[in-house]
């Protein structure tokens, strides 16, 4: 639906909500990338900034909610307009969560960095994180261009994340169970892995919202769930 509204300021309201989502998305991507970089490069210098930066995402999400409520109250949107506002709100919630997970990754990375050990798990983690970052980028692109096909590709890629995560998860559990001296560091890796995996899930939720916005219904099939390690280890 590319026609414009007769009341053109309504179009401006909708554009503003899209821009807020885009800003939130950009920030969430930045926070996640910074947290993964810090861990990969064993660089603690950016950690404080990442932790402090989360407040901006929280604020932006709040701003978007406020604007959405105003637009709904003032414009009484219908059909596609209503769906797109609802999608913006739901996607904003997801992006705010991505910020929380990134912050938690940053906090745990600091502990790992301070341990001054070099662990092979970092490489596996970075690999999963790179896939998830790509998914997030693509989901946001799909949102910006209202491209449901692109969104569905994101949805499908999450399976790979789940598989890699399950494998890393059992490796780490083995280290922890063996009573190895680095068991506590391993538990931080475990939670970071879980956070990244959760971001993957949230990213698929963004993709589903894009699909919903375009088609007016959720994608038909349940995505096959390859994560066998169940729902444990939430972030803060």
């Amino acid at each position: 639906m590319n026609e414009n509204h007769i009341v053109s300021s309504f179009d401006e309201d909708l554009a503003e909500l899209n821009q807020l989502v885009a800003r939130l998305g950009g920030l969430a991507e930045q926070q996640l990338a910074a947290a993964i970089d810090a861990l990969e490069n064993r660089d603690a210098s950016s950690i404080d900034k990442i932790i402090a930066g989360d407040a901006e995402l929280d604020q932006l999400e709040q701003d978007l909610n406020d604007r959405a409520i105003e637009v709904i109250a003032m414009r009484a949107p219908m059909a596609t307009d209503l769906r797109s506002i609802l999608s913006a709100v739901k996607i904003a919630t997801v992006l705010e969560r991505v910020g929380d997970y990134s912050k938690n990754i940053a906090k745990r990375s600091l502990v790992i960095i301070n341990e001054e050990t070099n662990r092979a798990e970092t490489i596996s983690l970075a690999r999963i994180a790179n896939i998830v970052q790509g998914m997030l980028r693509q989901a946001l692109d799909a949102y910006a261009t209202a491209n449901a096909d692109l969104a569905m590709e994101v949805w499908e890629r999450d399976e790979e994340v789940d598989e890699l995560y399950t494998s890393l998860h059992s490796d780490l559990l083995r280290v922890i169970a063996s009573g190895h001296e680095q068991a506590s560091v391993s538990s931080h890796f475990l939670f970071i892995a879980k956070n990244i995996e959760r971001i993957g899930d949230h990213t698929t939720a963004v993709a589903e919202q894009v699909y919903f916005q375009v088609h007016g219904e959720m994608p038909a099939e349940e995505r096959p769930k390859a994560d066998a390690s169940s729902q444990t280890g939430e972030s803060d």
Binding site: M1, H5, I6, M78, A79, L82
Partner: peptide, 19 residues
Amino acid sequence: IFTKPENQQTEAYISGKIG
């Protein structure tokens, strides 16, 4: 009709896109 109309003209009308 008000959440997912099938016809583009209906959608345009209920969304305030035609007079």
